[in-house]
Write a protein that binds this DNA or RNA. Structure first.
Lengths: 319, 319
DNA sequence: CACATATATACTCGAAATGAGTATTAATGG
DNA sequence: CCATTAATACTCATTTCGAGTATATATGTG
């Protein structure tokens, strides 16, 4: 068997935590100073399942125990993984993992560094109108034929047009990739950045912080999945301390969704869903009225078919 | 490199079509006469992406054009997939694929053969009360400790208790598997069926038709995913002929969801969403008033963020 | 032809969920 | 006492949903 015919399997994990208003992902330092997700090869001899292989590698590299984990997607695109010329084909399986222990591990980095266009909490990110849309317009115009142009136009509209859908993180990243707006595109294709006409950014700087291999794509998948899951599964609580105020809970959800929510309605929702129960204790804030501390009510899982926080209320800051 | 160290990648597909009221999946005959999903190797040299590899061999083997495809899950469990003595490890990537051409290919089989408890269109399947729930009650009672019992009770309630959630196909299958109610459990564990006390079915017959390896699990994943997707993505149309009546569309959705829908509301929904447009032509039924033929409006994709058929209306037959 | 049958299509109506407020209360620091 | 910060209570119009009733248009039968 030729080395070039072999397939090896890479396992990568997007390990997510939220500290206050900042959703973060654990990254490891790497060659070329590129951020990378903790990853390693799957060893068919040592590892009984894909997930146990992942846990082993992550444990060795980060000293972290993974709690909740979920398989995301398996990527096998030619040319998307290799930068060094080692030859064999790599198929990579991505995982999402949630944890609340953030400790003082040095590797945590806010995920909006990698996806600055995904944070709409304060306002629509200016870069969308100033950089992204003009460049994508060019991408549509430069399509080889009118059919491709129409397809591209539709994608641009779905991804960045009217009605922001916070779940389409992956679709947006893929579109930006294909349009040559993220660094990884040039690395993967071997083209020089300045050759590309679609380049919307004059200075040659790409959008967001790039990552090693296809790790940014995996992270995009993780964020998309997590944002979707929030709505019908009480996953936020995996990221919260055992006791929290309702505002802290709301801030965490907002951080993950990249949106502001209507405070009163958020509370109504949480109360009606029976997701939490009061502890009788209260927060001691520096200023302002103390809020009651709540804990997650495990019972919901028994009662409700789909307990989650269907967001919806996209609103300007009101509290 | 030792042969035993190599990993090969298998691609399996749940290829789904709907004929009238019957949702079907393409299965291939196999050793031991067990039904199996079509399975093909991923070729790292020929195939640019996993999905293109899938399309290629499905096209070669079945002469079918896949429309919509979606990756489901990647399994790598040791011993769970025996690659006929060749020794190497197989990691299998499962896909859901939709097609409308059913032709006279012999391999189509209704998916409720494999999951008879999932079809609630006529009524709640009697086997749930007569066989499943008693057996699961026993499964709860036989738990090694009270904590496990409580967990099992919760799962039973979520899966088969009040409020049927048609999307939990995989959860239900996994529960039945663990409770020893499906054939695959005995095959995988090597236990004799009659040893098991949890066996709720006196005759020793298991629930539903078993499949090769973990293919029934993959199919359960496919059905669950498809049922979920129906609600926010216009995937049904991938399964419909180019022109169809609204009742045909409704029947197809009902077949997939395993539920009856309220006819008038279904029409209202379809109309409001702008999912279809009339063709001006009419059906010519044997009896009854002819219905207008509709076609899918591709434009929705441009206009709506999440066009789908959020079902909801679980109702007795009314038309 | 009248009529049973099967289906399509239109319209109604109350209940619940949603989105966006206003108003009031409880704490703190100066 | 008052400005600030946040919690909490309550209101209200709009939309969506579930479940009907009513009527229209075809066929084939006695």
């Amino acid at each position: 068997m030729n080395v070039k015919d072999t397939v090896s399997i890479g396992l990568s994990a997007a390990i997510v935590a939220v500290e206050g208003e900042h959703p973060s992902v654990l990254v490891v330092a790497h060659e070329g100073s590129l951020d990378a997700l903790p990853f390693g090869p799957f060893d068919p001899v040592d590892h009984r399942t894909l997930e146990s292989g992942l846990r082993k590698w992550v444990g060795e590299q980060t000293k972290f125990d993974l709690g909740y984990t979920e398989q995301l997607y398996t990527f096998g695109d030619k040319g998307r993984h290799l930068s060094a010329g080692s030859g064999g084909r790599v198929v990579s399986v991505g995982y999402l993992a949630l944890t609340r222990q953030m400790r003082e591990a040095p590797g945590w980095r806010g995920w909006y560094h990698y996806f600055p266009w995904e944070d709409w909490r304060d306002a629509k990110p200016a870069m969308i109108d100033s950089v992204i849309l003009p460049a994508l317009k060019k991408f549509v115009k430069d399509a080889p034929d009118s059919e491709t142009a129409e397809l591209r136009r539709e994608r641009v509209n779905v991804c960045f047009g009217e009605g922001w859908d916070e779940e389409r993180v992956l679709e947006r990243y893929e579109l930006l990739y294909e349009a040559g707006l993220v660094e990884e595109f040039y690395r993967d294709s071997g083209h020089n950045k300045n050759e590309n006409k679609n380049q919307g950014n004059k200075k040659g700087a790409s959008l967001g912080t790039p990552m090693l291999f296809d790790h940014r794509r995996i992270l995009a998948t993780a964020i998309a999945r997590l944002r979707g899951k929030l709505k019908y599964r009480p996953v936020v609580f995996e990221l919260m301390a055992p006791a929290f105020t309702l505002l802290e809970l709301q801030r965490a959800v907002e951080a993950l969704a990249g949106l502001r929510l209507h405070k009163q309605n958020f509370r109504r929702l949480v109360a009606e869903q029976g997701l939490v129960e009061g502890t009788g204790k209260f927060s001691t804030p520096a200023r302002g009225r103390p809020a009651e501390l709540f804990r997650f009510r495990r019972g919901v899982l028994r009662e409700r078919p789909a307990p989650g926080l269907r967001l919806g209320g996209r609103r300007a800051r009101s509290g």
